[in-house]
Simulated scan of single mutants.
Amino acid sequence: MTALILPEPIAAYFVADQQSPEAVVRCFTAQAVVKDEGRSHVGLDAIRSWKLEAASRYTYTSEPFAWVQEDGRQRVTSRVTGNFPGSPVDLQYDFRLERGLIASLEITL
């Protein structure tokens, strides 16, 4: 099986997501927007709070297995396994990149 080669900012996000909320924040632009579980998180402080909350509620791993580019976005499908209802689940991560960082991320089923 061929290893999935992701664009650097996206690969960095998935590595950081297994490390710490601070590592995740460094992957985003200052005015980035994250949409997850029906809520929007705008700016680095809000993104930090989002990751801190997720880390306090769940322990999980994420394994990206598919990637496509379409309409200016990068869509990654990842198998997420952890201590949350419905685990494991395949989630869609829609990224928009800007100057080597993530400008927006929407996570959906």
Rank of each mutant, 00 (worst) to 15 (best):
T2Y: 05
T2S: 14
T2D: 13
A3M: 12
I10P: 06
A11E: 14
A12S: 15
A12L: 10
Y13N: 10
V15E: 12
A16C: 04
A16T: 04
D17E: 14
D17K: 12
Q18I: 00
Q19Y: 01
P21F: 12
P21A: 13
E22L: 07
V25S: 10
C27S: 07
T29S: 15
A30G: 08
Q31P: 00
Q31L: 04
V33P: 00
D36M: 06
E37Q: 13
R39C: 06
S40M: 06
G43C: 04
G43W: 02
L44G: 01
D45F: 00
A46G: 03
I47K: 06
R48D: 07
R48M: 13
S49H: 09
S49D: 15
W50Q: 13
W50P: 10
E53F: 06
E53S: 14
A54Q: 12
A54W: 02
S56T: 09
Y58E: 12
Y58D: 08
Y60E: 06
Y60A: 10
T61N: 11
S62H: 01
E63D: 14
E63G: 04
P64E: 07
A66R: 13
W67F: 15
W67L: 11
W67T: 00
V68W: 03
V68E: 05
Q69A: 13
Q74C: 11
R75F: 03
R75W: 01
R75N: 01
R75L: 12
R75T: 11
V76K: 10
V76S: 06
T77N: 01
S78L: 00
R79D: 03
V80L: 04
V80E: 06
G82N: 08
G82V: 06
N83C: 08
F84Y: 13
G86E: 12
S87P: 02
V89T: 11
D90M: 04
D90V: 09
L91W: 10
Q92W: 13
Y93C: 09
Y93N: 14
F95Q: 07
F95G: 05
E98V: 07
E98I: 00
G100K: 11
L101C: 07
I102C: 02
I102H: 01
A103E: 12
A103K: 15
A103P: 04
L105A: 09
L105T: 10
L105C: 09
L105W: 08
I107Q: 07
